[in-house]
Amino acid sequence: MAGGNPAGPSFKRKNAMSVDTATVARIASLARIKVTEEEIAAMVPELNGILAWVEQLGEVNVEGIAPMTAVIPNKQRLREDIVNADPLTGGDVQDKVLSNAPAGEHGFFGVPKVIE
């Protein structure tokens, strides 16, 4: 059962390699996740397996089909321009905003010095 393939033969994985170590390193950097070379090496086949599998979506004829925007038909509501109308989404809560800060000082969030 484990590793079984309930969805049938169409889910068979291709051996297409679409990402290499350099790509994985670039993606990790873009996602700001530090990775070791071993981790990259392990991720390459994993990601390729998943990517090869999702590539079957390419078979679907989507001509004239709009990408989904709202899963349940619904329109964007707009709120009134009122300050602190709902205290849960209003300001003047500096203590709450800073209460979990790893380096909250003098009302600020501290981060390592940024050189611009």
Partner: peptide, 20 residues
Amino acid sequence: SGAATAFGAEPNTQVSLVDA
């Protein structure tokens, strides 16, 4: 969010949980 936009306030006072 409902936090105010006025200029020159004390740091992180015009910040809601949404903005943070």
